[in-house]
C-alpha cells in the first residue's frame, strides 16, 4: 500500500508539474476574463461622473467616491424595487415548491389512470417558447385588472414544470419500503408525503427553491409587461429604467448594478452545492 503511494508520487515528474502550472495559469486567466466586467463595474461605481470620461482612462478611481451609492439608490426608489423583487421571488419560490412537490410526488408515487401520459403532457410544455403564452397571459391579467399588482406579477409564475420533473425524479429515489412502513403505521397519503417523503427530499427542495428564486429575480420580460408604476417595479425593470434615465451617468448605473448583482453573488457563494446538484440532475438523465 505504502509502496504504491510513493510510486505514484515518484511518477510526478517535472513535465507534469509544468502542465499543472500551465493549467492553473490558464484557469486563472479565464476566471479573470470572466470576472473582469464585474470588477470594472465595481471600479466605475466609485468614480466621479466626469472622471470616467477623463482622457487618461484609469482603471481605479482616484479616490473612491462612496457617495455614488446612496446618491444612485435614492435617485430612484431602489429600496422599493428590492422589496418588490423580494416579494415576487419569495412568492414564486413558495408557489413553485408547493406545486412541484405535490405534483412531483403524485407523478412519482401515487397511482392514477393516465399518470404517465399526463406527465408527458406536462413535460411537453417545456418545449414551448415562453413568448407564445406571454400575450394571452397579459390579456388575462389585464382582464382581471391585475396589471401593476403583486398578484398579476406572481400568479402566472407559480408552477414550474422543470420543478415538477426534478421533484418527481427525486421522490422516485426514496425507498418504497419507507412509505409502506408508514402506511402500515396508519399514515394516510398526506401524512406520508408530509412526514416521510418531503423531509427526505429536502436537498431537492433546496435546489428547486434556489433556482426558482434566481429565475424570479432575473425575470425581466414579464415584470416589464405587467408593472407600470414605479412602486411596482422589480430590480431588473428598475435598473433598465434607471439606465434609460441616467444614460451617461455611468458611475450611478454601475453602483445600481453592483447592488443588483451582489445579493445573487452572495447567495450563490453560500449555496453552490445546491446549484451544482440541480444542474447535474438536469444534465444527466
Amino acid at each position: 500500500m505504502r509502496e504504491s503511494v510513493s510510486g505514484t508520487r515518484g511518477s510526478f515528474g517535472r513535465p507534469r508539474a509544468l502542465a499543472t502550472t500551465a493549467r492553473t495559469t490558464l484557469l486563472l486567466l479565464a476566471c479573470l476574463a470572466m470576472a473582469a466586467p464585474f470588477l470594472w463595474m465595481a471600479a466605475t461605481s466609485l468614480m466621479g461622473q466626469l472622471e470616467v470620461f477623463s482622457s487618461g482612462g484609469r482603471l481605479l478611481p482616484e479616490t473612491p467616491l462612496w457617495s455614488n451609492y446612496p446618491d444612485a439608490l435614492t435617485a430612484q426608489p431602489f429600496a422599493r424595487y428590492f422589496l418588490n423583487s423580494l416579494v415576487f421571488a419569495t412568492a414564486v419560490v413558495a408557489g413553485q415548491v408547493a406545486t412541484a412537490t405535490t405534483a412531483g410526488y403524485a407523478f412519482a408515487r401515487l397511482e392514477f389512470p393516465g399518470r404517465d401520459r399526463i406527465f408527458m403532457l406536462f413535460l411537453a410544455t417545456m418545449m414551448v417558447p415562453a413568448v407564445i403564452v406571454l400575450i394571452p397571459r397579459f390579456l388575462m391579467i389585464d382582464a382581471l385588472g391585475w396589471i401593476d399588482s403583486y398578484q398579476g406579477l406572481v400568479s402566472t409564475e407559480l408552477v414550474s414544470v422543470w420543478g415538477i420533473f426534478l421533484m418527481r425524479q427525486y421522490f422516485r429515489t426514496v425507498p418504497r419500503e419507507l412509505e409502506d412502513a408508514a402506511r402500515v403505521d396508519g399514515a394516510g397519503p398526506l401524512r406520508i408525503f408530509w412526514s416521510v417523503a418531503l423531509p427526505l427530499a429536502k436537498p431537492a427542495v433546496a435546489t428547486l427553491a434556489l433556482f426558482a428564486f434566481i429565475d424570479a429575480w432575473k425575470n425581466f420580460l414579464w415584470p416589464l409587461l405587467v408593472t407600470r408604476s414605479m412602486e411596482m417595479r422589480v430590480v431588473e425593470v428598475g435598473i433598465a429604467a434607471f439606465h434609460s434615465t441616467y444614460e451617461i451617468n455611468w458611475p450611478y448605473q454601475m453602483a445600481a448594478g453592483v447592488v443588483a448583482v451582489l445579493p445573487i453573488a452572495l447567495l450563490f457563494l453560500f449555496t453552490q452545492r445546491y446549484f451544482v446538484r440541480g444542474i447535474q440532475l438536469e444534465g444527466i438523465r
Binding site: 470576472a35 464585474f38 432575473k218 435598473i239 448583482v261 453573488a265
Partner: peptide, 18 residues
C-alpha cells in the same frame, strides 16, 4: 465556479448595462 458562474445567474439587465 464562482467567477465562471456569476454571469449566468445574475441580473441580465445589470450585465447588459456593464
Amino acid at each position: 465556479r464562482l467567477a465562471l458562474f456569476l454571469p449566468g445567474i445574475t441580473s441580465v439587465v445589470a450585465i447588459a448595462v456593464v
